[in-house]
């Protein structure tokens, strides 16, 4: 029987700038997902502080953290987590419904997002009718449709083959460059690592190495 307490992150001091394309890299249990959850205001640090877009995570009320996620943060997961009973269009539309954007504008934004990921021909399809790669592209469109400041992607290529992995990584890289959206990946996938421009290696909850790659 354990004490129930576990230190997932320890002594982390990191700053992420606008438009970064960063990989948080490490083995399972290294604290990647916890770090992503804190940045995504889904969790709060037990000690220390985390500032997201100028706001302290610890001081956020449930309503204000939801508001922050609604407008500024996007999430992508390894298992896509699409709404199975809704169409591709409806899945991508959902974040805009939460923001109360009017119908015509909402429709245009959804079509734009689906065009970024090359899925305009699948708007009426259901997730069950899509391949893994297509599903993840829908997830990217859903994360990007509200033009968030930060996209948090937790093992986004874990369920994809090499071709699809490169495809979605290229899509995200393109969006990162065109929209200046910050992308933070939690990963140990070499394919993802090969795309990122900053690599933060985590080991046992601590930053082992922080490298900036010059790709120009």
């Amino acid at each position: 029987m354990g004490s129930g307490k576990f230190t997932a992150l320890n002594g982390i001091d990191l700053t992420f700038g606008k438009g970064e394309f960063t990989g948080i890299i490490g083995p399972s249990g290294s604290g990647k997902t916890t770090l992503l959850n804190i940045i995504g205001t889904l969790d709060v640090p037990s000690e220390g502080s985390a500032l997201i877009l100028g706001q302290s995570v610890a001081n956020l009320t449930p309503a204000s953290s939801a508001a922050l996620r609604k407008s500024k943060l996007g999430f992508i997961f390894q298992s896509y987590n699409l709404f199975q009973v809704h169409t591709v269009f409806e899945n991508v539309e959902f974040p805009l419904l939460l923001q109360g954007i009017e119908t015509a504008k909402r429709r245009q934004m959804v079509l734009d997002a689906l065009e970024w990921v090359g899925l305009t021909d699948k708007i009426k399809s259901r997730p069950a009718q899509l391949s893994g790669g297509e599903s993840q592209r829908v997830a990217i469109a859903r994360a990007m449709v509200k033009r968030p400041a930060v996209v948090l992607a937790d093992e986004p290529t874990a369920n994809l083959d090499a071709a699809n992995s490169h495809n979605i990584l290229q899509t995200m890289e393109k969006l990162n460059r065109e929209l200046q959206t910050t992308f933070l990946f939690a990963t140990h996938d070499e394919k993802v690592i090969s795309y990122v421009r900053r690599k933060i290696f985590l080991f046992d909850g601590k930053v082992a190495r922080d490298e900036i790659i010059d790709k120009n």
């Binding site: 449930p62 939801a66 609604k70 943060l73 974040p95 923001q99």
Partner: peptide, 8 residues
Amino acid sequence: MRLAIGEE
């Protein structure tokens, strides 16, 4: 997912 997207 709905919570992550920003629903309260």
